[in-house]
Design a protein around this nucleic acid. Structure first.
Lengths: 222, 222
DNA sequence: ACCTGAACACCGTTCAAGT
DNA sequence: ACCTGAACACCGTTCAAGT
């Protein structure tokens, strides 16, 4: 009985999968994707590599768990809306904001879209399409289109974050816009015409505009 | 003069960026992304690591060059169509087929979408939107939506290829469908309803269906 | 100018050994 | 059951030295 008590009162800083995932998220958020190594983790957790492997199979499982951790919060937070169209927009925006705050989530989702987080997203979208009155036949293609679009944005965001790193966003956009402006006008008339829009656009608004475009297309199928 | 001649007649197997890129593509296509290492390259090219670094700055530049090599062919092959809507579908399908044949291209495009290949794609789409009569204001958002969708599919395809690896496609789909069928029907009614469609769908057709959905949405903006 | 190949600094992962 | 930490098998990249 005394022994059992002792087991229940384990030191609060004992290692666990949750604590490891938490530490991983901390490193990813503050120092970026490339900083997450088992060495960095062992230092932060004051332990050995083998201790981590006792709780986690490998680095990929750790990344998956960290991503699901962030995404689970998003999916549960966005449940209020009843109007299906608004609900779809809200869920999509929730994912966008999460990826914006944690770019490494974008990398991970594009690397492994069969994550339970994406299944939840797909389910959440699909259920609303049903409520929207989209015919059965078209529901699969519609949900897939929305999901692929979100994954594309996720990847872009992660790539931008990787490239921006030091410089801030407006400087980053200015550089990109300058590159567009320097392109051959014969070969790239469209990009040149869009230079100003590139520099001045808002990622979040543009993301929503894309969602609305796809929703408008879906509304077309009757 | 004799010297100059000799220089012109260099041994045909001399190293060059093109030959290195070609070898890299060979490894990527036959053995997959993880097989592309500088050790594998030096073996295949019968040279030293330093020799490769003389022609190529680093692994990322090599991957970028290999991707642009594949994509450049796609973009030039698809120029026949005059009807803008068909041209957009053809360009998108060309990218899809290229990624289907070379899944590593999908990984690279999602990792670095500012590649010249994607700029060409964006330009190609944008020019056609103009021809389609899409208002200036909406062209940027429309081209971005299509591009993000294609990038999302690219990532998915690459991830699937990575996961499939050994087993063939139908076995892969069967496994995924079986996983969907095992989900809690209370929590995942939509996924369960879509299980059959997942198992029987054709990736290429579904990709086109998504493009058509977005195009239908774009046609809505007047 | 172009190439060789050993060496460097780092990875993720394993495993015998401890408690 | 859980943890330690040295060791292993790999990486990408550098660089003194060769031709």
């Amino acid at each position: 009985m005394g022994t059992k008590r002792q087991r229940a009162e384990r030191r609060t800083d004992a290692l666990s999968k949750e604590r490891i995932v938490e530490a991983a998220i901390g490193i990813l958020d503050t120092e970026g994707e490339s900083a997450l190594t088992f060495r960095a983790l062992t230092t932060r957790l004051a332990t050995g590599a083998g201790a981590i492997y006792w709780h986690v199979a490998n680095k990929n499982e750790l990344l998956t768990a960290a991503t699901d951790d962030v995404m689970a919060r998003v999916m549960t937070e966005v449940v209020g809306d009843t109007e299906p169209r608004e609900a779809i927009r809200a869920v999509a925006l929730g994912v966008f904001d999460a990826i914006d705050a944690h770019p490494w989530v974008g990398t991970q989702l594009t690397r492994d879209p069969s994550q339970s987080a994406m299944l939840q997203f797909f389910e959440s979208i699909g259920g609303r399409l049903q409520a929207l009155g989209v015919p059965e036949q078209a529901q699969f293609d519609s949900a897939t289109a929305l999901t692929n679009y979100v994954l594309g944005v996720a990847g872009q965001n992660a790539a931008n974050a990787r490239q921006a790193q030091e410089t801030d966003r407006s400087a980053f956009l200015a550089t990109a816009a300058a590159r567009w402006a320097r392109l051959d006008p014969e070969e790239y008339p469209f990009l040149r015409r869009m230079t100003t829009q590139l520099r001045e656009h808002d990622d979040r608004e543009q993301f929503l505009a894309g969602i609305d475009l796809i929703l408008a297309g879906i509304a077309t199928v009757r």
